[in-house]
Simulated assay, not measured.
Amino acid sequence: MRQLFICFLVVCFVSFSANAQEKKENLVQSNKWFIAGPSKESEETINDVRLKKGIITITAKDNPKGEIELNVMITSSETNDGIPTNLSNESKFVEITYQSTQIIKLQAREGNSEGTGCVHGGSHPRISLPASPNQFKTIKIPWSNFKQDELADGKLLNIHNLCKFNFVNYNPVSGSVLKIKSVIID
């Protein structure tokens, strides 16, 4: 009887562990987002809509001046700074479902070399998210694709010191839109 009980506990533990690993966190649903630049939506509006409808939406103001930067910390934080996340070696990519009327640069921001975490500094390996103006698009981006300045020989992203994602529109056009349904780290 005791052996049966121990077997039952082992099966439950293995099953629970497998389910916990399969469940992936969607940063759109779980983490606060931050905005800088000429957006029609305020940070408060972005996060209210995110919580109610499960989507991030930003629209460039008329005659925008400067870039628009949308940020989300990897480890949830109430501020746009915090502690870096040390992803497992098993983590291979980030999966994003989005719609955009313009090309967006996705920076995977690392912690700074001074060791003070995610306070400004660190490197910003990045990739380009192609425009997808008419429909939502889901892409899986391997960590190995993130390189400093998108250069073929640029410094690779260190997933053991990852602070946040910056979705950047460097040259917003009036009325350009970015919508994000999910950001999931595998």
Rank of each mutant, 00 (worst) to 15 (best):
156 L>H: 08
159 I>H: 02
10 V>I: 13
88 S>L: 13
85 T>M: 05
142 P>G: 04
137 K>Y: 02
52 K>E: 12
78 E>I: 05
185 I>T: 00
178 L>T: 04
37 G>V: 00
1 M>V: 10
85 T>P: 01
28 V>H: 11
143 W>N: 04
130 P>Y: 08
178 L>Q: 09
24 K>T: 08
156 L>R: 04
72 V>M: 10
6 I>M: 12
39 S>Y: 00
73 M>Q: 13
77 S>A: 14
86 N>Q: 14
23 K>R: 06
51 L>Y: 14
88 S>V: 12
110 E>I: 00
85 T>E: 13
165 F>C: 01
35 I>E: 09
116 T>N: 12
120 H>M: 11
17 S>G: 08
46 I>S: 09
161 N>I: 00
128 S>T: 12
51 L>K: 10
80 N>Q: 07
149 D>F: 09
36 A>H: 10
82 G>T: 06
89 N>M: 07
64 P>A: 04
113 S>F: 09
6 I>W: 05
88 S>I: 13
166 N>S: 11
86 N>A: 14
64 P>F: 03
21 Q>I: 02
125 P>W: 03
37 G>Y: 15
134 N>S: 11
6 I>K: 14
38 P>G: 15
132 S>R: 07
40 K>D: 15
177 V>I: 14
36 A>L: 06
125 P>S: 03
118 C>D: 11
77 S>Y: 01
4 L>A: 15
131 A>I: 01
185 I>Y: 12
160 H>P: 09
169 N>F: 12
186 D>F: 03
3 Q>F: 08
111 G>N: 05
93 F>I: 01
98 Y>G: 15
23 K>T: 10
181 K>D: 15
78 E>V: 05
153 D>W: 12
141 I>D: 03
175 G>D: 10
128 S>M: 14
37 G>N: 09
115 G>T: 12
139 I>A: 13
105 K>Y: 14
141 I>R: 04
28 V>A: 14
77 S>K: 00
87 L>A: 02
66 G>Y: 01
101 T>D: 07
118 C>V: 00
92 K>L: 12
61 K>Q: 14
173 V>N: 10
148 Q>N: 06
159 I>Y: 10
164 K>I: 00
31 N>K: 10
52 K>W: 00
168 V>W: 00
1 M>E: 09
11 V>Y: 07
166 N>W: 06
69 E>P: 00
88 S>D: 11
78 E>N: 13
44 E>Q: 08
64 P>G: 09
163 C>N: 05
119 V>R: 11
92 K>S: 13
186 D>E: 07
165 F>I: 05
